[in-house]
């Protein structure tokens, strides 16, 4: 069969992030390019955080999933020209995050400011009567907030430039 780029993207939608299993590598905006070459399929990706410990694991998952779905040799490489930022998330990713109980990142408006972390909407009750408890959480991409309205501590996917 002839593999098209859209076949590759469709297969990539099935590769989930190991730390946030409701988001695929497409949802997260981690893929910067795909191509079909004589020797097989090539995928270029970028990690969300430079110290992301899951990068090799994700590369391996992409390779395995695509080789199975497309029955061809797959090369996954880190794109050193591009850098990830949280505005790269695909439409729909924010809703999936919220339903998973993590407040989605605010869209950044040019240079980011500390104020962007204030009044992050609670994913449980939508109240903005919240405060930042710590800019660091259970993974590098998450911050911890407290909701004064419903009393829940919740995690927030940090806006990152």
């Amino acid at each position: 069969m002839t593999i098209s780029e859209s076949d590759i993207y469709k297969a990539l939608e099935q590769v989930m992030d190991p730390e946030i299993p409701v988001l695929s590598v497409i949802d997260l905006g981690m893929i910067t390019g795909v191509s079909v070459e004589e020797a097989g399929v090539r995928v270029k990706m970028i990690p969300t955080f430079s110290a992301c410990p899951a990068v090799d694991y994700i590369k391996q998952n992409i390779r395995t999933a695509l080789e199975k779905a497309l029955d061809t040799k797959v090369t996954v490489e880190i794109d050193r020209e591009a850098t990830w930022n949280s505005d790269r998330m695909a439409a729909g990713a924010h809703e999936k995050l919220k339903n998973f109980g993590i407040a989605p990142p605010q869209m950044r408006q040019g240079e980011e400011h500390a104020e962007i972390e204030l009044h992050t909407a609670c994913p449980h009750c939508d109240s903005e009567n919240t405060y930042l408890r710590s800019p660091f959480g259970s993974t590098l991409c998450r911050a911890i907030h407290y909701c004064r309205n419903c009393g829940y501590v919740f995690e927030h996917f940090k806006p990152l430039g």
Binding site: F49, S50, A51, R80, E81, A82, T83, W84, N85, E112, L140, L160, G161
Partner: peptide
């Protein structure tokens, strides 16, 4: 690109 990334972190 690395400086851009690290500055954000």
């Amino acid at each position: 690109p690395l400086a851009e990334k690290l500055k954000g972190e």
